[in-house]
Design a protein around this nucleic acid. Structure first.
Lengths: 225, 225
DNA sequence: TCTGGCATCAACCGATCGGTCGATGCCAGG
DNA sequence: CCTGGCATCGACCGATCGGTTGATGCCAGA
């Protein structure tokens, strides 16, 4: 049910090709027209045209090159997604070392592939994307994973104690010391002690900064509000 | 250079199979022994044994099932990665709707695949992972992407002004109002005004909480420390 | 034109915070 | 056994913060 070989009976997937290189567009067009179940609705040579054509032709999938003159790919993706167009964008670029791989994903791309991918893989990717799935080249997947991966196992001495984390969590909610004390059934003095300690551990001297660096280290995850 | 068909000349990739189902282990073993360039070093039926065998046999890739009795897969991954073993872990599970897909990735898995993937894809994935690349099933990729995707375009009235963001950024560093004033070439009174305004916009009444919710909304990204 | 958001400043006051002296008891590791 | 981290408490004080009220000027959109 995932990345499959050409599924037999299926209505063709409509695509829009976006690349500043006419050669690449021709190549892709030929490939898709020769291929199993695809229909090339049109081509665009820059980001602006891409957004316009995407709105007009309503393709299911937009094959988008990044780094084009006149309207970068990332902006085009943001434009398409931002307009609420029902197209999926599959980034198709030459290098996956581009600095804008992540921006492209953040802008709303549904997939990211390299141009040297074999046609069968490209076909499968377009179908996956059209079906609402996400296809990532290994390099991009790595970066994404690095983003999410548990930051650090916590450097020894700087690890907060359980109690300190509790206090910090409440601080992050704007709770004044006195109420933190009440909430944890301890004295306000103790709260202050915990705070001074965790300030030292985090290398700050202020509750706002403590919250900030705690977020930076994943101590205060996106979980707790 | 990415997910390729069987590359001809190559030293075999050593793998360790971890699954509580003997049938599955047998199936995988048969598949890999019949396949191109692999060597099955061993099998484990639970997480604890997996960690032990990974340390003993030093396989290049560990094929790991999640949700097993006696030592969950996620713990095993954490154990392997935490011990600094030079093995890559490729999660191979039945469902990608598992609640622990992301935990597995966070624990350090290098890949995530479904058991219904065709053998060719499995082979390619194992090679990719062994080569340090990351392979994700579309569903997992989607989740990962959702995590990273730009949170919200900022709800109208609650959007901070540029100046307010500047102030907030400094606040997150633990800068006192007076120094914020100096840094921005404005009066301390103005800093306080900006603060009261952004407190209102963020729905808080305290700088620590402001920093926290700003992080939660992506206003203060992981970028600025 | 007028409204409204933005940025700028002032003065005041009570509340809160951060720092610094302490002190006690528990428990685990060397 | 003793050290050290953790949690708990008290008291004091200066610094900082948050709230309020009020004012000015700019600029863009209705």
């Amino acid at each position: 049910m995932t990345t499959e070989q050409p599924p037999p009976g299926h209505e063709p997937v409509s695509v829009l090709l976006v690349d500043d290189h006419p050669v690449v567009r021709d190549g892709l067009r030929a490939m898709f027209e020769r291929g199993p179940g695809f229909r090339v609705l049109g081509e665009a040579a820059d980001g602006v045209a891409a957004v316009r054509l995407a709105a007009e032709l309503r393709p299911e999938v937009v094959l988008m090159d990044l780094r084009m003159p006149g309207g970068g790919g990332v902006d085009a993706i943001a434009g398409i997604v931002g307009r609420g167009l029902p197209c999926k964008v599959l980034v198709l670029t030459t290098y996956d070392t581009d600095a804008d791989t992540l921006p492209a994903i953040e802008a709303g791309a549904s997939g990211y592939l390299l141009k040297d991918a074999p046609p069968s893989q490209l076909f499968a990717a377009v179908r996956d994307v059209a079906a609402g799935r996400t296809v990532l080249s290994p390099a991009v997947a790595s970066r994404l994973v690095d983003r999410v991966r548990a930051p650090r196992p916590e450097a020894g001495r700087n690890a907060l104690s359980a109690r300190e984390r509790e206090v910090l969590t409440l601080v992050a909610k704007g709770t004044p010391n006195r109420e933190i004390a009440r909430a944890l059934f301890i004295s306000e003095a103790t709260v202050k002690t915990h705070l001074t300690h965790l300030y030292a551990k985090l290398g700050v001297n202020d509750r706002a900064a403590a919250v900030a660096t705690a977020y930076g280290r994943g101590i205060l995850g996106p979980g707790e509000n």
